[in-house]
């Protein structure tokens, strides 16, 4: 099953997003990671790498990211890690919800879950 990692500058925001996504995500493994490791705002590549390992059961991981350094540090973590992982270029919360649902599809692949996460860019709210 494809796993998910949510990377936010704020550890609490990451956990909150996972909380929302998990409601729809059944057995999907979703890991939140965020914060600068010192209790402040930021992202740390080593922490993201650890989250990738926790979320992976062999089928790969789709990574949802918020701003700037979350993207760059997720890229660094993916380059360093042995886990097959891709970043979804979409909104972090809506993308996580979409991806969590997509991952519960028995025929889901890394690519199909990423596509669904990125489709969240087109969600109309009004």
């Amino acid at each position: 099953m494809v796993g998910l990692v949510v990377v936010s500058h704020s550890a609490r925001a990451g956990e909150g997003i996972v909380e929302v996504a998990a409601e729809m995500g059944g057995d999907t493994r979703i890991e939140a990671v965020g914060g600068d490791g010192q209790g402040g705002i930021g992202t740390v590549p080593d922490d993201i790498e650890t989250a990738l390992e926790s979320a992976d059961d062999g089928d790969g991981v789709v990574v949802l990211v918020d701003l700037g350094s979350a993207v760059m540090n997720a890229e660094v973590a993916i380059e360093t890690s042995d886990v097959e992982a891709v970043i979804a270029d979409g909104p972090v919360l809506e993308g996580a919800v979409n991806a969590a649902v997509a991952a519960t599809d028995p025929s889901a692949t890394l690519e199909s879950v990423r596509e669904q996460a990125e489709a969240a860019r087109d969600i109309d709210k009004l």
């Binding site: 600068d36 402040g40 930021g42 760059m72 660094v76």
Partner: peptide, 8 residues
């Protein structure tokens, strides 16, 4: 570094 300066 815990921010964009780390990877950059």
């Amino acid at each position: 570094v815990g921010g964009a300066s780390g990877p950059l």
